[in-house]
């Protein structure tokens, strides 16, 4: 486990991201707050467009222009990073925060060998010379479980299978010894049999290195197996946070309950899977009050007017009027 440390791997407070467009400003994230301790895996779930990947990109400082952080604070291992210049941010990425993206087939530059890409990254973040960096690269490949690392290091990405490529991507993410890793759908593009290997690897490395992991996924199964805590996002907001066991067993937000209801459980005798009717609102059409109110089975009149904020509730926190003064 990680050693006790004064500053968490990631602290996001009141983060808002907006996209100025010709038809006005779209708010993609509003008032997102998250904390990830060192050695902890925080799962971030939600439908497509809920803002989970956007949160990861904002932390990495890789928002697509014209997207920008309009308010809030991001601290990686205690250092504030949301107000850094492009140049300063370049030395934060890879060194303080690493990233793993969804598609290992396209994450690696096809024209450079795996070794060249590893050595490049290692040398960016340490003062090792070429030979030392290569030795370290072989070690990293061994660490992520690539057989025959000494030989494989000179192979090009197209010579690796999907699962092996994702291992290489993980090795690259670890090359700068970051305190935080943003894993954006790291298993979505992989075979189911490979998914478990990758999540197990991620979990082990996170513990060994004492790095915090932000695991962005829409797959509750991956969350249940891998994460320590989970944050549920909806329409650009965090609506529920808590320990994985808690949230899975006793979801507090009606949306989270809906999400849980739509996971098939092996061996459970359920008549049919429940589903959440309707679709998440587009960014330019978020209803007043609670963004979930048009789809919520328990919505009352207050839900149409009052926007709930994330309030501590039990071990976690939830943004729902049911837990904050009632819906009527």
């Amino acid at each position: 486990m990680s050693t006790a440390s004064p500053s968490p791997a990631l602290e996001v407070k009141g983060l808002s991201v907006e996209f100025p467009t010709r038809r006005g400003i779209l708010t993609a994230l509003s008032d997102v707050s998250l904390t990830i301790e060192r050695g902890e895996i925080l799962g971030v779930v939600g439908e497509s467009g809920a803002g989970k990947s956007m949160t990861g990109m904002a932390v990495l400082g890789l928002l697509e222009p014209p997207g920008r952080v309009s308010s809030g604070e991001i601290r990686i291992a205690g250092k504030r990073t949301d107000n850094l210049s492009d140049d300063e941010m370049e030395s934060v990425r890879g060194r303080m925060v690493g990233a793993i993206f969804q598609d290992p087939l396209t994450s690696l530059n096809p024209l450079f060998s795996v070794g060249q890409q590893l050595v490049e990254t290692i040398r960016l973040h340490s003062d090792r010379n070429r030979t030392e960096a290569r030795v370290h690269a072989v070690n990293l490949l061994k660490q992520v479980g690539i057989p025959g690392a000494e030989e494989r290091i000179d192979h090009h990405p197209h010579q690796f299978s999907g699962g092996m490529r994702q291992r290489v991507v993980i090795a690259l993410a670890l090359a700068g010894n970051p305190q935080l890793i943003i894993a954006d759908e790291p298993t979505t593009a992989l075979d189911v049999s490979i998914q478990a290997q990758i999540t197990t690897l991620l979990r082990r490395l996170c513990r060994e290195q004492g790095a915090g992991v932000m695991l962005v996924t829409h797959d509750m199964g991956v969350i249940a197996e891998t994460a320590d805590r989970v944050a549920v996002m909806y329409a650009g907001r965090v609506i529920e946070v808590g320990a994985v066991e808690d949230v899975l067993a006793r979801p507090k937000h009606p949306y989270t309950r809906g999400l849980m209801g739509s996971i098939p459980a092996l061996g459970a005798r359920v008549e049919r899977l429940t589903q959440i009717d309707g679709a998440m609102p587009r960014l330019n059409a978020v209803p007043p009050g609670c963004a979930f109110n048009p789809r919520c089975p328990e919505a009352g009149s207050r839900c149409l007017q009052v926007r709930p904020t994330l309030m501590p509730e039990g071990q976690g926190a939830v943004a729902c009027l049911l837990h904050d003064g009632g819906v009527a």
Partner: peptide
């Protein structure tokens, strides 16, 4: 994607343009 990933692992803009992107 590999350009985004290269940025995420800390590759600076100049080598990103002239090494990673240009070669492709």
């Amino acid at each position: 994607d590999f350009i985004k990933f290269a940025r995420a692992r800390g590759v600076k803009r100049r080598p990103l343009w002239f090494r990673h992107a240009l070669k492709n």
